[in-house]
């Protein structure tokens, strides 16, 4: 699998607490291929953000990380500080949900952008400034020179998220990890950011790992989708397959909860129950507590990942009979 630029194998992340530790990620594994946009979707608390942080070696203490994450042939878990410094922002860039909190309010956009660029690229101050302007043009911010002189509070949420994207791509990373970058934005601005990321992926061959809980955003942006539940990937496949022929009962339910226009004033489908408490995740298949197809087997034995066809994989005892 030489076309895989980011590979996660059996990732486990725990946060020790006074009583039982929180098992945020429990054996998550998937690969992201060169130039694709992979959507990582799941409910709050399923471990998707922690997985993303682990890819940059950013899991906050006292979190303990086990398993393997290979970015462009190099292991991230247990890597040296020097190696991590090169990785962050250089090979892998990340943008966050709230762009207002991700920028330092005391420095201008220009100062923050050029600082990042000078860490990763062999340029002087004016060279860095040119690269920053180039990056701001790339994300289609009008008047990039003016934007460089602004402080974060002088820009709107949509403009700030564009600045974040510009900062992320300014060092020419292999991979962009986007952690719910549109959740805090208006629908209109969300659409603009989706189109922007789609264009960047196409024109620059940027690999994107896009984390969201919004099915609409995934459908309009991602080539492939990985569905995460209680710290594991339960299903993965192309967007077409996952939206039209989902195999896992959780994916099926999740797809139905999204409101879509044209249905009129009706009740929405819901997934009964709650996301499990990750201090004591259910035995067997973690979804069995909310699944209408659960058998005795599902309560006891955790299902293995099976390949259905092509690159469509699923972890469910009953996937084949339910399809």
């Amino acid at each position: 699998m030489s076309d895989v630029v980011l590979e996660i194998r059996d990732l486990r992340v725990e946060f020790p607490e006074l009583g039982r530790s929180v098992q945020a990620v429990r054996g998550c594994g998937f690969g992201v291929r060169y130039g694709e946009v992979l959507g990582l979707i799941g409910e709050s608390g399923c471990g998707k953000s922690v997985t993303a942080l682990a890819c940059l070696g950013l899991v906050p203490p006292p979190g303990r990380v086990h398993g393997s994450i290979i970015v462009d042939g190099e292991e991230v878990i247990g890597a040296s500080r020097k190696a991590l410094a090169d990785l962050r922002g250089g090979k892998v860039a990340m943008i966050f949900q709230n762009p207002g909190k991700a920028l330092n309010p005391f420095f201008t956009v220009g100062r923050q952008m050029t600082d990042v660029i000078r860490v990763h690229r062999p340029v002087d101050r004016s060279g860095a400034r040119d690269l920053a302007i180039e990056a701001l043009e790339l994300v289609r911010l009008p008047d990039p020179r003016v934007v460089l002189g602004k402080y974060p509070h002088q820009l709107s949420g949509g403009q700030l998220q564009r600045v974040m994207v510009a900062m992320a791509v300014s060092c020419d990373p292999l991979i962009l990890i986007a952690d719910e970058p549109t959740t805090a934005l208006d629908v209109t601005i969300q659409g603009q950011i989706i189109v922007l990321i789609r264009d960047l992926a196409q024109s620059r061959g940027l690999t994107v790992l896009f984390i969201t809980h919004d099915q609409g955003v995934v459908a309009s942006l991602c080539d492939r989708v990985a569905v995460m539940y209680a710290g594991r990937i339960v299903e993965m496949g192309s967007s077409d397959v996952l939206f039209n022929r989902p195999a896992h009962p959780y994916t099926r339910k999740l797809m139905l909860t999204a409101p879509r226009l044209g249905r009129g004033k009706t009740d929405l489908d819901v997934i009964p129950g709650q996301v499990p408490d990750m201090r004591a995740p259910p035995e067997g298949c973690a979804f069995h507590t909310r699944c209408s197809h659960a058998l005795e087997l599902c309560r006891k034995v955790s299902p293995l990942t099976e390949t259905l066809d092509g690159d469509h994989t699923v972890s469910c005892h009953r996937a084949k009979e339910l399809v």
Binding site: V187, T188, G191, A219, L221, D240, L261
Partner: peptide
């Protein structure tokens, strides 16, 4: 424009997403 900015949960309708320009 507001209607056209809603991402539809259906990959085949991807091109229908027409975000409103500007702010």
């Amino acid at each position: 424009a507001l209607l056209d900015s809603i991402p539809v949960p259906d990959p085949s309708q991807r091109e229908r997403l027409q975000p409103l320009r500007g702010e």
